[in-house]
Design a protein around this nucleic acid. Structure first.
Length: 588
DNA sequence: ATAGGGTTAG
């Protein structure tokens, strides 16, 4: 659309300038209503501007709302023009709904609407976020046929598409073939190399490029830090760069926290000039991933005190911290907070909540959420199966698995791990064996070492020790330490000294020096009254300087999380916990 | 073209 005709249209239709200045959803809704009243929605140009304005307003936490709204507008337009289609494709490709974007693209072509050089960059972006699918190549062919590959915007889209679908070399060929390049071309290429960990190539391009902006630095810092764990090099770049922006700080902090270096991560976090939700999420997530969920909750409280509003992604972090700590009160609070602030849940948030309720033993709350979900992912089902199994409802876990099969829901290796674990737990030997047996043939999923582990456990617990040993010895991959370990454990319950010794021998061959193995073996000897052997093992352990792991436990009372470490006991704290517990009981 | 999210036994 040429600018002259646009300004002409603008003067003809007062709604267009209103739309351009609209800053809130309600302004847009009002204009929309007026357009409908005056039967102006059939004008596809006006409708396009409406959609465009709505898309500009969309932010990550209200995307569902806008997506539904975008489709509503779409359904009201009689003859959408190219600009309208482009806008809706752009919207879906930018809001991580590539499938929908491609669907609209194919509809666009089917209805014979002309595609232009603005259509393709967004289509390519959608292709890029669905690696493994070959649509991108087809689109590439079309782009070349139409001569759009001369357009820098389209060309950069092609580079990025190939880099993201794992074909960096092809991206580089296109890049080399360019007569002209801009900063985005260079940055896309560097991002491509950095994404697959080829930091040498990325660095070479970075050194060769005529000018750099904050993107270029951020891509490199992120690549060194997170992709290859060279946090020192990342820090060198971070210190060297001229104008650090928020993204660079965040990338650097994430680099540290990815390696568990929470000290430096925290230091940078405290030192940064400004923080956004992402900075807080990175820190929270870092603490969770490295086993300090309690500190993660502290950071979350601080975040609230600083007046920073959590969004759905930081909420997921807090919810999983609560899950790990069994902090039901705080988990419920976050759930309530999200509802109150109308932060829309997506599948991930709901799944995290289900997991949290399961881990806190609130099966009914978990179940209610699950039943009301309009869309479930593989992970959602897995979380449910794991949770039911872990809470002693193994039959229900298996039932859910059967339901998945009936409905044709996609499954993955973890689904099988979850259901097999449930079978093991409940001693459902026949059912477990059947599922394991059909895994590859009926579901096309190759059993991994963990699945063999489950089966060994299943057989071992049922006392079928020789079958278990047979599974270990005939499995296609090298048996892991845990496999022999679980056989050893089974040997203890079923008092089979022969096989126990075989297992220990194998464990030693595999280089185990886990004190647990020896404790277990010495217990087996002790139970059989073989005291000489017991002492032999004890001496061996002392000689190697082994100790038992320190026990620790965590409990939440009145929203506070207390951690107790074995041997390092604060009686005052225990007392106060007991006191508040007894108060709670008295109240209810 | 750059930064943050959910599932694994005892």
């Amino acid at each position: 659309m040429a600018t002259t005709s646009f300004s002409k249209l603008l003067s003809q239709n007062p709604f267009l300038s209103l739309l351009q200045n609209a800053r809130t959803a309600s302004q847009i809704f009002q204009i929309h209503a007026q357009l409908i009243c005056r039967a102006l929605m059939s004008d596809s140009f006006v409708a396009s501007r409406l959609l465009f304005a709505a898309c500009e307003l969309s932010n990550p936490s209200s995307i569902h709302l806008t997506a539904a709204y975008a489709e509503l507008i779409f359904s009201q337009v009689h003859h959408p023009n190219t600009f309208f289609w482009n806008t809706i494709i752009r919207f879906h490709s930018q809001t991580s709904n590539p499938l929908r974007a491609l669907l609209f693209f194919s509809q666009m072509r089917k209805s014979g609407i002309f595609t232009d050089n603005y259509t393709y960059p967004f289509v390519l972006k959608a292709c890029a976020s669905m690696p493994g699918r070959r649509e991108g190549v087809v689109v590439h062919g079309e782009v070349v046929k139409r001569g759009f590959d001369e357009d820098l915007f389209v060309r950069n889209g092609l580079i990025s598409m190939y880099c993201r679908s794992g074909d960096v070399e092809l991206g580089m060929m296109l890049f080399d073939g360019f007569r002209s390049r801009d900063l985005v071309s260079w940055n896309s290429m560097i991002a491509g190399y950095s994404m697959c960990g080829k930091m040498g190539e990325a660095q070479k391009l970075f050194d060769a490029m005529p000018e750099r902006d904050a993107f270029s630095w951020a891509i490199l810092i992120d690549g060194y830090g997170k992709k290859i764990g060279d946090v020192r090099r990342a820090r060198e770049l971070f210190d060297a760069m001229p104008d650090r922006d928020l993204v660079c700080w965040n990338s650097m902090i994430d680099g540290y926290s990815g390696l568990g270096m929470m000290g430096p991560a925290r230091e940078l976090f405290e030192a940064m000039p400004e923080r956004n939700v992402i900075s807080w999420s990175i820190l929270i997530d870092g603490y969770i991933r490295h086993g300090d969920s309690k500190e993660a909750l502290n950071i979350f409280q601080q975040m609230l005190r600083h007046g920073m509003k959590p969004d759905k992604i930081s909420a997921v972090g807090v919810i999983s911290a609560c899950a790990q700590l069994g902090a039901l009160d705080q988990g419920r609070w976050v759930h309530f907070y999200l509802k109150k602030n109308r932060i829309l849940f997506d599948v991930v948030v709901q799944t995290a909540l289900i997991d949290m309720y399961m881990k806190c033993g609130s099966l009914d709350l978990a179940r209610r959420l699950f039943d009301n979900m309009r869309e479930r992912s593989i992970v959602t089902w897995n979380v449910m199966i794991v949770g039911l199994g872990a809470n002693g409802y193994e039959a229900e876990a298996v039932e859910l698995f059967d339901q998945m099969e009936k409905e044709g829901t996609l499954m993955d290796d973890l689904t099988f791990l979850a259901v097999l674990t449930a079978c093991t737990h409940a001693g459902l030997v026949a059912k477990g064996w059947e599922i394991f047996d059909r895994m590859r043939s009926d579901f096309g999923i190759t059993p991994k070492a963990e699945h063999y582990g489950c089966i060994v456990d299943l057989l071992g617990r049922a006392g079928r020790l020789h079958e278990a040993r047979n599974v270990i010895e005939t499995m296609p991959m090298k048996p892991t330490l845990t496999l022999w370990g679980s056989l050893l454990a089974a040997c203890r319950t079923h008092r089979c000294v022969d096989l126990a010794e075989v297992s220990v021998e194998q464990l030693k061959n595999l280089g185990a020096d886990d004190s647990g193995v020896y404790v277990l073996l010495s217990n087996i000897y002790a139970e059989e009254g073989m005291w000489d052997d017991v002492w032999r093992i004890r001496k061996l352990m002392c000689a190697r300087g082994m100790k038992k792991e320190v026990g620790r436990s965590v409990v939440e009372v009145n929203g506070r999380v207390h951690e107790f470490v074995n041997g390092d006991v604060s009686y005052l704290e225990i007392f106060s916990v007991l006191w508040s517990l007894s108060n709670n009981i008295a109240l209810t």
